[in-house]
Simulated scan of single mutants.
Amino acid sequence: MSDKKWMPRWFYQLASPRWCYQITGKLMPGFMLAAVLLILGGVIWGLVFAPSDYQQGNSFRIIYLHVPSAFLAQSIYITMAIAGAIGLIWKMKVADMVAKSCAPIGASMAILALVTGAIWGKPTWGAWWVWDARLTSMLILLFLYFGVMALNSAIENESTAAQATAVLAIVGLVNIPIIKYSVDWWNTLHQPATFTLTEKPAMPVEMWLPLLIMVLGFYCFFAVALMLRLRNEIIQRERRAGWVRELLTDK
C-alpha cells in the first residue's frame, strides 16, 4: 500500500508552500486574538487577583511566566524534531521550513524559562543558579536550540542544512524526558511538576486556573510566531515562483 492511500489529504496539502502560505494567513488573526486575550487575562488574574502563596508570598507569581515558557520550550523542540523527521522521510520542503522557524522561538522560550527560574530561585533557594538536574537539562535544551540555529547558518545548501539539523533535533529528543522526570529520578531543589494529566493540581483553583490560561495563551502566541516566521521563510525560498512574484507585485 502506498503512502498516498493512508495519508490524509491535508498532509500533502501542507507540502505545498503556496497552500501553506494561504492557510496560515487565514489562521493567524484568530490565534493572534486568542493569544492577546488569554495572556492579558492570565496576567491580570495571576498578578492581581490570585492569592499569594502561604510560603513564598508574592514571589511565586513569576510562575505565570516561568511555567508556560518552560512548557513551550519543550513542546517547540518536539515540534521541531517531528517536522525535521517529516522532512527527512517525505522530503517536504515546508516541514524543513517549519523546523527552521521553530528554533529561534524555542530558544527564546528556553531563555525566558531559565531567566525567570533564576529570578524565582534567588528568594526561594538563596541562589540565582544551582546545578540542579532540572536546570541543567533546561540549559542543555537551550544549547541544542543554539546548535540547530548554528548548523542552519553554517551550511549554505538548504537541503543539507535541513537534514543535518533534523538529525541533531531528533537525537536531542532524549533530553526532553530527562527534563520532565529529572525531579522524580534525582534529588533536586526544583519543585515537582505543577500540572499533570493524572493528578489533581496541588494549588487551589484560583491559583492554577490563571496559570492554565497563561499556558494556553503562550501556545497561541507560539502558533502566531511560527506562522509569521514560516510565511517569511516561504517567501524567501519561493521568491522565484510565479505566485510569489504576483503576490509581491500586488503589494
Rank of each mutant, 00 (worst) to 15 (best):
V36I: 15
M109G: 08
H190L: 04
K180F: 08
M28F: 03
A85W: 11
A107G: 10
W185C: 03
E156H: 15
N157T: 02
M149A: 09
I178F: 06
A113I: 02
W128T: 03
A161W: 01
S16Q: 07
L230E: 01
H66R: 04
A95P: 01
D132I: 11
S101K: 10
P29N: 14
E156V: 10
I170F: 09
V98G: 04
S101V: 12
T124P: 03
W19V: 12
L173Y: 03
N152M: 08
V48K: 01
L141C: 07
K200S: 11
M214H: 02
Q236K: 15
A50E: 00
W208L: 02
G41Y: 00
G84Y: 01
L40F: 13
L114T: 01
I140P: 11
T198N: 15
Y12E: 12
L209Y: 04
L142C: 12
A95I: 01
A99E: 03
N157Q: 07
P177A: 07
Y219R: 02
T160M: 12
A169L: 06
V67N: 08
N175R: 07
A35N: 07
Y145H: 06
P204Q: 09
L65A: 13
A225Q: 08
E233N: 14
A35H: 09
L189W: 05
A73H: 04
W10K: 15
R18I: 05
S137P: 14
L173F: 03
Q22Y: 09
M207E: 09
S52K: 13
L247C: 02
G84C: 13
F222S: 15
L197W: 10
M1N: 11
M214G: 04
Q163D: 14
D96G: 05
A118M: 15
W19K: 05
D3S: 05
W90T: 12
G25F: 11
L226E: 14
F146R: 05
Y12Q: 08
I63V: 11
F221R: 03
V224T: 05
E233D: 14
S108G: 14
L33M: 13
F222Q: 08
V48F: 01
Q22T: 08
C20N: 04
Q13T: 06
K122V: 02
L38R: 01
A118H: 04
V174D: 02
K93V: 12
P17W: 00
W125R: 01
W120Q: 08
M109I: 03
L226R: 00
R18K: 14
A150P: 07
A193D: 11
N152G: 14
Q13S: 13
R245V: 13
I76T: 11
L37I: 11
L228V: 10
F222K: 03
F60T: 09
A85Y: 11
I89P: 08
G84D: 06
A162Y: 00
W45V: 00
A73G: 12
S137D: 07
T198P: 06
G117N: 05
L72T: 15
A225W: 02
I63H: 02
I39F: 02
Q74E: 12
P68A: 01
H190I: 06
W185N: 03
F146Q: 11
L112K: 01
G46C: 07
Q74D: 11
D3K: 01
P204F: 02
V94Y: 14
P68W: 00
R134A: 03
E246P: 05
K180Q: 10
W243T: 04
S182V: 01
K93P: 11
L141M: 15
V115T: 07
A110C: 12
F143Q: 05
